[in-house]
Amino acid sequence: MLIKRPGDIKPSEITPQGIYARRRELIKSAGLLAVAGVAGIGTGPATAQTGAKLPAIRKSSLSTTEKPNSFKDITSYNNYYEFGTDKSDPAENARALKVRPWSVVVEGEVKKPRAFGIEDLLKFSLEERIYRMRCVEAWSMVIPWVGFEFNQIAKQVEPTSKAKFVEFVTAYQTDTMNGVRMPILNWPYTEGLRIDEAMHPLTILSVGLYDQMLPNQSGAPVRLVVPWKYGFKSGKSIVRIRFVEKQPKTAWESAAPQEYGFYSNVNPDVDHPRWSQKTEKRLPSFFANRKTEMFNGYADQVASLYAGMDLKKLY
């Protein structure tokens, strides 16, 4: 005889991971709120966090006119290994990421090193930049980022003549990032650009997606976006920016140098050792029938940065 027994309910089905991971914080803030309420103190305007709407955003002529992917697609299919290696992991696990308080230290070969609080970064005049995003795994999306050009940061810290490269160091929160327990990459995830690449008007620091603050799985609260390079060059959740003289070692380059070079410009003529880069799948399409363009279609703007370079060797 078959006796039906309801399956055990896992704790994770009752309490979302994000809330569970922040339980102490939540209890604390609830307590503070109660105290404030009793004392009749206002808590002031809540700090805008993930999901909050951004103020009026300027359009940009650097945006593509292609149709952006849905918010759902962009935020449910992510590579953010600190939260797991499956594409669906970050949407689930990154809820735990602590995004406030947040500051980005800018230092190295600069005249005026300083830290930017996330509040400072949100004061830059924000633009919408609808960019193509080509992943090294041969799929692509169109994403409406909100942010500002990286060169605005540089202007404030004044790089010296010794600053030849920029290194981007991303968040490493051992208490919220379930993926960093595994030595899959060298944590913290580090990326880098040549200074002229970083200063290019297409290179932005993004703080938003569509009309809202950047979701955690997309790299909240602030991430780099370099649209003519494979997606992994655009580091998420940035905490430190260093202007340096020597070419920095990047995470994927350290992990598999024969597969991922420092430049990693989108290039249909340089295959990944394990798959062709000639075509791509524009999600959510089933078919990889879209021809990949040199520099992801931004050749007019960026090809001159690489004049005279052998891009087959410097991939």
Binding site: I74, S76, K87, W139, S285
Partner: peptide, 11 residues
């Protein structure tokens, strides 16, 4: 139910 297969159904 396209949501079962996510943003990259072919993969």
């Amino acid at each position: 139910f396209p949501e079962w297969l996510g943003a990259n159904p072919a993969e």
